[in-house]
Amino acid sequence: MADSKRINKEDTGRLLDEWSKEFSVSVPSRENGMPAMLPWDGKDTSFLEWYRNTVIPPKANFFPPYEKMFDFQKGAEGYHLELPPSDKQKQLIFGIRPCDARALTILDTVFQDTYQDPYYLSRRANTVLVGLGCTNPYDSCFCTSLGISPGESTDVDLMFTDTGDGFFIEPVSDKGRELLAATGGLEDGLEADEARAKDVKEAAYRKITRRIDTGDIQQRLAACFENQDYWEKVAAKCVSCGICTFLCPTCYCFDINDELSQDEGTRFRSWDSCSFPIYTRMPMENPRQEKWRRVRQKVCHKYWFYPVNLDITACTGCGRCIRLCPVNWDITQTLNNLPASS
């Protein structure tokens, strides 16, 4: 590849240093007790050894667990709103996995639908995504069933492939091409690197053995939508916590709350989950009182309603919902065991 580059692994820190001059750089970090994309401390590159994927998905870097929307004061002539200063800082996320990068493309469809969400979109516009292909996917990963390759991505700006001692670097977007051109200290990619990278990508692809059949999934979900017995059976062990939705890289539901004191206050938004019995009880009632309806909603939203409404499946096969579930509720089993008809 003509515009590809290469770098030795031991020079990763230097590269991140250089990028830190222009960007706020985030990398996989366990500093906060579990893996998440956190600001680079300027020295630690040990994540290159342990990093497989984060617990907190990188969606949190754009759509955090909670954020202030605005402050407000009540005055004589109504309410005065004060927006938080818009975040102009350019950020660079280093090491995002192809599944999580695709998840951002999926989230874009929601946050720039009829309403343009300024909080999410300004962060997206200010961010460069540097992807890092998987070499060691988890046994819970099933990205290949969703048309994603663990080693490749069209959803990042630059793509890194681990070739053993170093990385093979490919620009994916114009943004990535510009960044690469402006980055010093990189050697041109060699044909041997490219060949090695191809092998690594193919090997990663083959390592993913968990599968779902997405062929006629909308029809199959529609056919058993009314099959209460099935949904009750698969929902029985669910404890209705928020792990699978909060830590899903594509789930975007949020709640809005005001903190009030006298005539002023702050409006926050924070992650919400369709698994919770009290979901949407604020505007009215939750139409899904029974657990099986909530489980059905989660599955159908991702694989049926989302594709119909936004032409994209809201699952990337990252496997967090399986890996982190306290009762091992497994969406791939629910999908693969769908009865042929009700």
């Binding site: 579990m34 907190i56 404890v239 209705s240 916590c241 928020g242 830590l247 924070s270």
Partner: peptide
Amino acid sequence: FSRCIRCYACRNV
């Protein structure tokens, strides 16, 4: 508690 995401798994299990 700064990293709690209030998923309520602790409560629900």
